[in-house]
């Protein structure tokens, strides 16, 4: 094997790893998931170019579509905190709480799925259906409750007054505000995380299509 082929194969492998890593990074808000996933198909195409492999028009079109979608997803990811603040007026406490809630719900749903898989043999899939529904409910409830608790805990303990009327805010109003913050955070987190993970899976699929087309 000559050096060009070896470099090309290494680039293709790096591209596939990058797409997989980008999908996993999409679950964490700090790590740049979409740009890393976007690099996957680019590296694969670069590998084919180094190896002097012909790339069809569909291949270039798929790359362009992947890059365009990646830019859109990155923009959504960057501007979602601003949008969340405009929609629900939420603070950092709600954001941190919603993230804790989402991660806990995701990890907890793994155990629920395990129970569903074990029970499906005995009860004709009923346990599987119930555990799947439970996981979906958890994915909504986790960030919502986490965001609500986070928003409540982040509030100051000194009395809060309404900026317009100057009246003291009752506890019920604070609870409603926190619930609204939790719902806004839940929707924002699910939309952004879901978009990033779906985009990451799309780049993995694109890389798989490139490699399969190359091998066959």
């Amino acid at each position: 094997m000559d050096w060009a082929s070896m470099a090309g194969v290494i680039l293709v492998i790096l591209g596939c790893c990058s797409a997989l890593a980008g999908t996993l990074f999409g679950l964490l808000p700090v790590l740049p998931g979409p740009p890393v996933a976007m690099a996957g198909p680019v590296l694969v195409i670069a590998g084919f170019t180094v190896m002097d492999e012909p790339i069809s028009g569909w291949g270039w079109a798929l790359l362009a579509a992947t890059l365009l979608a990646g830019l859109v997803v990155t923009a959504i990811d960057l501007f979602s905190p601003v949008l969340g603040k405009k929609l629900g007026g939420t603070g950092r406490g709600a954001m941190v709480g919603a993230y804790f809630g989402l991660m806990t719900a995701l990890l907890f749903s793994v155990h629920l799925s395990g129970i569903g898989a074990a029970g499906s043999l005995a009860s004709a899939g009923l346990a599987l259906v119930l555990s799947t529904l439970g996981s979906l409910v958890l994915l909504f409830l986790g960030p919502m409750l986490g965001g609500m608790v986070g928003d409540l805990v982040a509030k100051p303990s000194v009395v809060q007054r309404d900026p317009e009327s100057g009246a003291v805010k009752p506890t019920s109003q604070l609870l409603w505000e926190s619930l609204a913050a939790g719902v806004a955070q839940c929707l924002g987190l699910l939309i952004t995380t879901g978009t990033k993970v779906v985009y990451g899976l799309g780049t993995v699929l694109a890389c798989a299509l490139y490699v399969l087309g190359w091998l066959w």
Binding site: G97, H111, L145, V153, S157, K169, L175
Partner: peptide
């Protein structure tokens, strides 16, 4: 009228939720 219960209420609700989750995980 200088104090508000919101953060302590949040702590009680949050710790109860976490405790329930931890116990459920231990049982599972």
């Amino acid at each position: 009228e200088s104090l508000h219960p919101a953060p302590f209420l949040g702590a009680v609700v949050g710790s109860c939720l976490l405790l329930a989750l931890a116990v459920t995980r231990l049982i599972l």
